[in-house]
Design a protein around this nucleic acid. Structure first.
Lengths: 359, 359
DNA sequence: AACACTTGATTAAACGATTAATCAGTTGTT
DNA sequence: AACAACTGATTAATCGTTTAATCAAGTGTT
């Protein structure tokens, strides 16, 4: 009997005040011409009746759903909570909802996930690409959050600068022998971080890079990385390009009796959930996700809302080239978080028996 | 000039075949009466033109958006990637999209987040409540994923059984002195896990519970938990109710020179991302998120789709009481993942110098 | 041949909001 | 006084889909 959608609609408000729906719509959107007095009365009864505009009706008419898609091809990424939280917050401030899409780590299914979002009529998408995948042209504005060195990147943390900063910090502590730990050399983010670290270290330092996935291909997943041997070889700074390999390094070294930070220092990137609670707590570089999300969403929303209906001519021109939005600020500085896993480099050979600073 | 939504709509297909839109709609949905031959022709041209139905139009007409809301009040929870991934997958199979909502850990903002979802017209929601928050009646079907002991729980892992299982495993290894590590006693999930563990240990074992947040209230966040002292007191099994405290215990013990699993065993819950890669890799209990998500989504979808339009009478009856959906299977078994952080209990006093099995 | 069914299609009315076009008054200008 | 300009409101069309109601034609029964 009753209408299947709960709550009042525009016409119910209009009827209860004896005015037309158009006037109610105008009053609530503030667009047409409505007298101040009537406008006030309309707003009052609208909120009294608990009016909630129907997104479906609005979407149908305006052609905009008010929803953005968030594509994280590597959803198992421990950064996901941070990203999702920041994006959802920034989007909700801008009046948008966030629809998630997952391609279960499979690069081929990334397209499928994107299509699902398009079918749901998202107005734009935020894509955090997996390992430098290039984003093909899709039918809506896209913000790409990867790394500044990637062509087409909209906004991201300044991974290179982050690398320089952690390198400088360790160098200032006296470290001259750096073992860098990465997962996969195909990752633009990891390469930038490593590039930044290397660029900050002049010829006075020794730098070696260990790619974990390559080692695992040979020795199996979860295999030991032989870091204690590296410590014996004189490496004192174990700088991982993410907190996951940093944690791996920390536990492997600890297990082998190498004291951290007594003998060697271990640092990470991203300030993941566990970094403050492990012992010793992890020194790391944090991304300013809130700012990154804010910029990405703002750029996206601008691209969505500036396109007045019926600009297909210019649109066609753009779509052939790219629909990837740009932002004036595209690199957001990273922040050094100093905790207990890093300390002054011990002069001379590493001695597993010293440096047990308790606490 | 051109229509602002790209791609063809029903009427374009209808026009190009010289039939009515209703016939096209019937053919594509398979609902009305259409001759087999024409139906085939319609489907062919629809896919040839790349027809994608407008969710907005459909939503407006049917009153259903095809979108579910996912509410995770504690989004910084490291389980989030697992949950989001599983839910999104199960939902996409059922033809639904997933809109995320975050209340930034703030219990008060949970209502706000739920309202945002309602305003976007979600057809139902999955709520993973924060620490036993009771879900008030909201305007749509809700699936609650918490713990079987919570009233109103739709489906969840069988945390109690998981506790029994890990306890039995450790007991069989010879452990008799258990230190259980939890974060917060207000969490139903953690209490159930602890309850399960305790229930599996008869009088022959010593069991003590450490609530980390209580210790941190006194000593500050990230403070040492004094676990090495506990090991000295004779505790050999450190069973945490989540992998985060387990990792904390592991690193704190290692740092203090207590060998794991040589001197003591450490176990966790949830099989979080880092569990396989730390040294020693963490023995833990895994939830079957895929199954949980499948059940939750199925129950939700059934509640959504069974409600024929205009059942407000019965609806009113229900809404006053509860709109929380139920599933026939409400507890999903957990799975023991044995890795290297657990081993046989050493008889006699703990000696920090032994048990360095280098794998 | 008159009638009832079935089949295959069309017509038309929603769903709820937005907005261009229009209209009736009122005020202002010359 | 006549006309323009402005104000405050209404009318009506539109977005794309679904679906109940209707209709025309063919089939079968008596």
């Amino acid at each position: 009997m009753a209408s299947n959608r709960p709550g009042p609609n525009l016409s119910r408000i209009a009827a209860s005040l004896g005015v037309s729906v158009a006037t109610v719509s105008n009053a609530l959107s503030g667009k047409g011409r409505v007298s101040a007095e009537l406008g006030e009365r309309i707003r009052a009864t609208a909120s009294a009746l608990g009016y909630v505009p129907s997104q479906a009706g609005r979407a149908l008419r305006t052609g905009r759903s008010g929803v953005l898609g968030l594509v994280l091809p590597d959803i198992s990424n421990p950064l996901f909570p941070q990203i999702a939280q920041a994006m959802e917050y920034a989007a909700s401030i801008a009046g948008y909802g966030v629809l998630i899409a997952d391609s279960r780590g499979d690069v081929a299914r990334q397209t499928e996930a994107i299509n699902r979002l398009l079918e749901r009529g998202v107005d734009g998408m935020i894509i955090v690409p997996r390992r430098g995948t290039r984003i093909a042209d899709i039918g809506c504005p896209v913000a790409v959050v990867d790394t500044p060195s990637t062509p087409g990147n909209t906004v991201s943390a300044d991974h290179w600068q982050g690398g320089r900063q952690i390198a400088k910090y360790l160098h200032d502590l006296g470290h001259r022998d750096f073992l860098l730990l990465g997962n996969n050399p195909a990752s633009n983010v990891q390469n930038d971080r490593i590039g930044g670290i290397k660029s900050a270290l002049d010829g006075s330092s020794r730098v070696e890079v260990l790619w974990i996935e390559k080692i695992e291909e040979r020795d199996g997943a979860g295999c030991p990385l032989g870091l204690a041997d590296k410590a014996r070889d004189g490496f004192t700074a174990f700088a991982a390009v993410s907190d996951l390999p940093a944690l791996r390094a920390l536990t492997e070294l600890q297990r082998a009796g190498v004291s951290v930070p007594g003998c060697v220092s271990v640092t990470g990137f991203d300030d993941l959930i566990w970094s403050p609670v492990v012992t010793p707590a992890l020194t790391t570089m944090r991304m300013d996700m809130a700012t990154i999300a804010e910029i990405a969403i703002a750029a996206l929303v601008e691209a969505i809302e500036k396109r007045a209906p019926g600009e297909t001519s210019e649109d066609e021109l753009l779509s052939g080239i790219r629909r990837i939005v740009t932002a004036t600020v595209s690199r957001v500085p990273m922040q050094l978080i100093v905790r207990q896993s890093s300390g002054p480099a011990k002069p001379g050979k590493t001695d597993p028996s010293d440096g047990e600073l308790p606490k």
